[in-house]
Structure formats: structure tokens, C-alpha cells
Amino acid sequence: MDSLPVLETENLTKFYGKARGISEVNLSVSKGEIFGFIGPNGAGKSTTIRTVLGLLFPDSGGVRLFGENALARGDKLRRRIGFVPSELNYYDGLKTGQLLDYSARLFGIGDRSAIREYSARLDLDLNRSIKDLSLGNRKKVAIVQALLHHPELLILDEPTSGLDPLMQSRFYEILREEQEHGATVFFSSHTLSEVERLCSRVAIIKEGRIIKTSGMDELKQLYLKRFRIIFPRGTAFTVEELERKAPGILQISVSKRGAEGLYRGDVRDLMKYFSVLPLEDAVLEDPGLEEIFMHYYNGKEEIS
């Protein structure tokens, strides 16, 4: 686990189009981990991934895959990578099975058992024509073609959008199996719940820059708690009152019977404060990543 990073970018910078691009992106994904890469649409997730895969050429900076320079030896290194793209465009004239066969041959794989196995698990019909496939089925094709050569590194660009919940959970199951077999997963998403569920570490990208990289636990624990409190009948508090009394409370919203919000700081301080309030009920929980995420995006001053 402490060996060389499987995927590493160094000050990766790429600009194109109208101010789209990434700037000095540094990532380091260790062997065997599931690494989350989150940011809203247009933040630069796909740009980063495309540069790593050699679809785009960086203006400056470097990419190392399995410890080797990916810009020089990309074609060899890609043999060990499976990629699920965010947009799914395949040769419309082909059948699903033909496309997967094509991919297998390009990877130099003669054995088709992996195709059959994964297709069966994902309920993918190999005889359907690709142009007739729904978004969800295309996604399945993308997943199978990424897995069929047993890659050491899986790069997934929003892999679950379009999949129904059952297929999503089967997909997560497959990912965990791959991880158990030693595969590394680099997982980009803008729906944070799945990143939260799967990933051990996460990098957040915003407007082309990485604004935070940390362990999932650290990210969740260290920064924010979500609280919900219920007041007894007849008592009421204003937002100002609460914020004044307990510094560290964020995004509070007060309703008739209660209040909820986020808190940053030592949890004991918050509990000390709550303990003197006439509360009917209080709930303290880990916030979803969405909220951490929103917090990062809203709190611009904290980024710089």
C-alpha cells in the first residue's frame, strides 16, 4: 500500500476553449484505494481525466501512471487501465457484443469469459444494437468494456448516472471486488453520496483547481456536524440569538418548533451550549458530503 502512487499528476495545467481548463492539479492515488474526485459540472474533472488518459495534452505539468511517464508511454500504460467515460458514444452500427469484442481485441485479449460474466451480472444483452440502447444500458456497456481486461487502475468518470439503484449497487459490489483483487479506483462524481459510500480519500476540484484533498473520515469528522434541535412549545429563538450564543454554527435555519444547521468546531462546546437550552430533542450527525461540498463552494473566503 505504501508503494509508488498508481496515478499521480504534477502541476497539471491545461487550458482550452473559453477559459475552460485545469490549473496546477496535483493528485496522488495509492495502490488499492478508491479515490473520489468531486466537483460540479465544468469544474475540470473530465479535463483532468482526459489529460491523464492522453486524450488531451497538458500545457504544463506531468502525469505518471504506475510510476511511469504517461505522456511518453501512454499506449503501453493504458493496457492496465479501464476507463468509463461520462459521455457514452459508441459505434452505432455495432451490436453490444461486437463492440466489447472489438475492445477485447484492442487490448489483445482472446478470452471472452470476462465479457460474458460482467454482462450477465449487469443484465446486459449482447445481441442488441448499440444505437437502440438506453442511457442505462450504454452505461453498462461502458462498465463492461472497462472491466473486461482486468485493469489494475479503473478510471471512472461519473459511472453511475443513468443506472437504476439495483444496478448501481451491483456496480458498487463489483468495484469492491476489484479493489479486493488489488485494483485501484479513481472515481469522479458530482453526486456525493456514492463517493461518500465508496471512497477512502477524496479530492475536491473547483474551477479547475484542487481545493482540498483529504481522507474521507477526516473530511467528514473534522469540519462539520449537522445538528437538529426541537424546542418545547412556547419557546422560540431567533437565528441571531443562536449564532451569538454558539460561535461556529453555520447555515442555521429556524422553524416554528426547531432549528437545524451545521456546526464547525469542537463538538463538546456545542453540547455544552445545547445542555443549557430548554430542548425537547437534539440530534447530532455526520453531514452528507453534499453539505461539506456546498460549504466549500459557498465559503469562497476560506479557499484562498
Binding site: 500504460l77 467515460p85 459508441y90
Partner: peptide, 11 residues
């Protein structure tokens, strides 16, 4: 037809 993303990410 955006199939380049498929083909050019093969080894």
C-alpha cells in the same frame, strides 16, 4: 461521433 474517447483510450 465522439467514439474517439473509446478508441484513443485503448492501449
Amino acid at each position: 461521433e465522439k467514439t474517439a474517447e473509446f478508441l484513443y483510450t485503448r492501449p
